[in-house]
């Protein structure tokens, strides 16, 4: 926990309740959290804070999750940051497109918070 305590997670989620849920749980696990509710803000915040991991909602207004993901990957500092995408059940094509643009993991809504936290931890350690 001591090392991960310094690590920063960027949450991109336009549903305020879900953003709040993620924030509470991530902080409880000792990570620092910044939340934004749009793709445009995600890119700005990414450059500004250089997070250690990104949790990215697929369905965002304007810039979609997939566009944000590929933009972050193009960014020279963003080639290796772990990106976890939140998607809807049964959207297999989405998953394939997500892998294409370089997402590391997919979490299906509604998700188990404990499972999501485990995946965050695993991706942070691998990195």
């Amino acid at each position: 926990m001591t090392e991960s305590a310094k690590q920063l997670v960027l949450v991109v989620e336009d549903e305020p309740a879900q953003a709040e849920l993620l924030r509470y749980n991530l902080e409880k696990n000792g990570w620092r959290v910044v939340c934004v509710d749009s793709g445009d803000d995600a890119l700005l915040m990414y450059r500004e804070t250089m997070p250690d991991l990104v949790i990215l909602d697929w369905m965002l207004p304007h810039l979609s999750g997939i566009e944000v993901c590929s933009e972050i990957r193009k960014n020279e500092n963003g080639a290796h940051v772990p990106i976890l995408m939140l998607t809807a059940r049964g959207q297999e094509e989405d998953r394939l497109r997500g892998i294409d643009v370089g997402a590391d993991d997919f979490i299906v809504k509604p998700y188990s918070v404990a499972d999501l936290m485990e995946r965050v931890a695993r991706n942070l350690i691998v990195n």
């Binding site: 309740a17 879900q18 849920l21 509470y24 409880k28 188990s112 918070v113």
Partner: peptide, 19 residues
């Protein structure tokens, strides 16, 4: 429907565990 449901499921789990 999934959006509010995701929040509800997540809050229930959180209230039973971490919170």
């Amino acid at each position: 429907l999934r959006s509010p449901l995701t929040a509800l499921v997540g809050f229930i789990e959180t209230l039973q565990g971490p919170a």
